[in-house]
């Protein structure tokens, strides 16, 4: 019965992120992706992506507060296994934390367990989001927003104290259909 579709959804599956790069759907609900994965994706792409992530030991962790420290991330994520490497996401210009990081484990199983048991729980009193990642590469630690942080923090309309208050570019921009994904640091 191996390989059969489970009767309940698995939480250790990669999100639709990789595919959504090519087929970006317009989203009107800007927080839709945080902590709640969007499952609309195409079968064939899903297979490609899973091939890629079958041995992944790295997680992308999103929705951190700018003030969350490496030590806090270690403390929480070590509950799923020893951490091999931790790379904090930084503002491209100020080199200060901008709300995401990469956690690399020694084993794929630890990364999966982290998806299942830690993704969607709180760190520093914020619900964090985890996603399997094919592995950190130099350069991906930097935010890709116009002003240096993550894109989602450019256009955020709500006031988020942990992430620098209002979006930095909110002033003129309110067009609907913009993609608010916190996709900085992620593969393109």
């Amino acid at each position: 019965m191996r390989g059969q579709r489970t009767t309940v959804e698995r939480l250790d599956r990669p999100s639709a992120y990789f595919n959504s790069n090519k087929h970006k759907k317009r989203r009107f609900d800007k927080d839709q992706r945080d902590g709640d994965d969007d499952r609309n994706r195409q079968q064939s792409e899903q297979q490609d992506e899973e091939e890629h992530l079958r041995t992944a030991t790295t997680l992308y962790v999103g929705n951190l507060s700018f003030y969350t420290t490496e030590e806090q991330v270690y403390e929480l994520f070590s509950k799923c296994g020893e951490i091999k490497r931790l790379v904090m996401g930084l503002d491209r210009f100020t080199k200060t934390p901008c709300g995401f990081c990469f956690v690399e484990y020694y084993t794929h199983q630890d990364a999966l367990d982290s998806m299942k048991f830690i993704g969607g729980t709180k760190l520093d009193e914020r619900i964090i989001r985890t996603d399997l990642d094919p592995g950190f590469e130099e350069g991906r630690q930097y935010g890709r927003g116009k002003s240096g942080g993550q894109v989602r923090d450019e256009y955020r309309e709500d006031y988020d104290e942990g992430r620098g208050g209002l979006g930095r570019a909110i002033a003129g921009e309110k067009s609907r259909g913009r993609n608010y994904d916190d996709d900085d640091g992620r593969l393109r």
Binding site: G81, D113, F117, I118, T121
Partner: peptide, 12 residues
């Protein structure tokens, strides 16, 4: 059977 943090997460 599972890592302890799983049971934490169930209670949460």
């Amino acid at each position: 059977e599972q890592k302890l943090v799983y049971y934490h997460s169930v209670l949460t």
